[in-house]
């Protein structure tokens, strides 16, 4: 039990270090959008996700509706459902219902990736170890970024505003380069987003992201349905 927990902690250290720098960028973005250091940290502590939080802050900044917020979070984070589904097949017998309720909080892209790579079944202690260290990194980075964002000169905080987007590009581009279907989906989605930004400006930011993503993904699913092996890349 105890050794599983510490194994989880050690597997989570690289994740935590990565989160620390990325969430620093989120903290700055949140403060630039008018949120307090506390609000930014609270978002990170309760959500533990990058894209969903960034989109959420955009909606808060423009005073969007709650429906919009719900739909945006659903669209952006729905991938976690698949990851959760996949991990649920890999759980140790110790994973009782209450443990599942707690550990589901920490299913992120990176934690999912590390957990899926494990040979043995996942125990609650192991997952708690990874989740604990990763979330500490995520929240600490956010708080530091949010606090520093108010102190740093504008030349520095401005430049750091690109951190999260840089990370998004690093997620999109390698698979788009390898797989034509992903490239197509990425280009269709980006083109739609550009149209919403400059032409159909009546559509709010949140809905523009939802519509762009759904149309692009349906296009991909219709013309390039995935083979069973690709599913594992999720």
């Amino acid at each position: 039990m105890k050794s599983d927990f510490f194994r989880g902690i050690s597997h989570g250290i690289p994740i935590a270090l990565g989160y620390l720098s990325v969430s620093f960028g989120f903290g700055i973005k949140a403060v630039n959008a008018g949120l307090s250091v506390f609000a930014a940290s609270a978002i990170s502590a309760t959500n533990l996700t990058s894209a969903g939080q960034a989109a959420g802050v955009d909606i808060i900044a423009v005073g969007g509706t709650i429906i919009e917020m719900i739909l945006v979070q659903l669209t952006i984070n729905i991938r976690y459902s698949l990851m959760a589904l996949s991990l649920s097949q890999k759980l140790d017998g110790k994973f009782t219902f209450p443990h599942r309720l707690i550990a589901s909080y920490g299913i992120t892209d990176e934690i999912f990736a590390v957990c899926s790579a494990q040979k043995q079944r996942l125990t609650p202690a192991y997952m708690y170890g990874i989740i604990l260290i990763s979330s500490v990194g995520w929240v600490t980075g956010t708080a530091l970024g949010a606090a520093a964002g108010q102190l740093l000169p504008e030349s520095v905080s401005g430049a750091l505003g690109i951190v999260l987007y840089g990370m998004f590009m690093a997620v999109i581009i390698p698979p788009a380069r390898k797989q034509f279907s992903v490239l197509l989906v990425v280009i269709v989605s980006a083109l739609e987003s550009v149209l919403f930004r400059y032409l159909f400006t009546a559509v709010s930011t949140g809905f523009a992201v939802i519509i762009s993503a759904i149309v692009a993904s349906v296009t991909g699913a219709l013309f390039f349905p995935i083979k069973d092996t690709e599913e594992n890349n999720l």
Binding site: A51, F168, S193, G220, L234
Partner: peptide, 21 residues
């Protein structure tokens, strides 16, 4: 298969729309 494909593409589509422009 359609739904699984849709879910597979969603993260890339979302991040692309959020990043550009």
């Amino acid at each position: 298969r359609f739904f699984r494909s849709f879910l597979y593409y969603i993260p890339y589509a979302v991040l692309s729309a959020m990043t550009i422009p």
